[in-house]
Simulated scan of single mutants.
Amino acid sequence: MLRWYKPVPFSKLHVTDVPDLPGVYVLLRDPADISSVLKIGPARSLRSMYERELAIPDKGRGLHPQAMMFCETWADAEEAQRLIVAYRRKHGRSPVMNSQW
């Protein structure tokens, strides 16, 4: 069973709140709403992924994530794929930022 951390808002103040370990991350549009999933993905370093997303400027598309939720796991790619499949099964589509189009 995966142990999920509470959503961490994107801010330079919270960089150290994210561990430098492999895991699965979920980008959220709204930190207060864990159902506002934009992307699910694997990360060899959750902190590096957080810093990368933090550095991307919002271009007014409305798809810029506001928070990242994550869990630590060594099987990051497999867990991410499993979560994407479960999301697709429930919602009939992949998360917006996981879509190829």
Rank of each mutant, 00 (worst) to 15 (best):
L46F: 11
L83F: 07
H14Q: 12
P42E: 09
F10H: 00
L46K: 01
Y87H: 12
A32G: 07
T73F: 01
V26F: 03
P42A: 12
R47D: 05
V24Q: 07
I84M: 15
Y25L: 00
M68S: 06
P95E: 06
V24I: 11
H64D: 00
L27T: 02
G60T: 04
D76H: 12
G23E: 08
I56V: 10
G41H: 03
Q81C: 10
T73P: 02
D17A: 08
L83N: 06
R82W: 11
K6R: 09
R93P: 04
R88H: 12
P19S: 10
A67I: 00
A77W: 08
K39T: 06
S36P: 14
N98H: 09
D30F: 01
V85A: 14
P31E: 05
T73D: 04
G92Q: 09
D33H: 11
L2V: 14
E51S: 02
I84C: 07
Y50I: 01
A75W: 07
P19E: 03
A75F: 04
E51F: 02
R93C: 02
H14R: 02
Y50S: 09
M69E: 01
S45E: 00
S11Y: 04
W74Q: 13
R29E: 03
L63C: 10
S36C: 04
L54Q: 08
L27C: 07
K12G: 15
H91V: 06
L2F: 11
A67H: 01
G62I: 07
V18L: 14
S36M: 10
V24G: 04
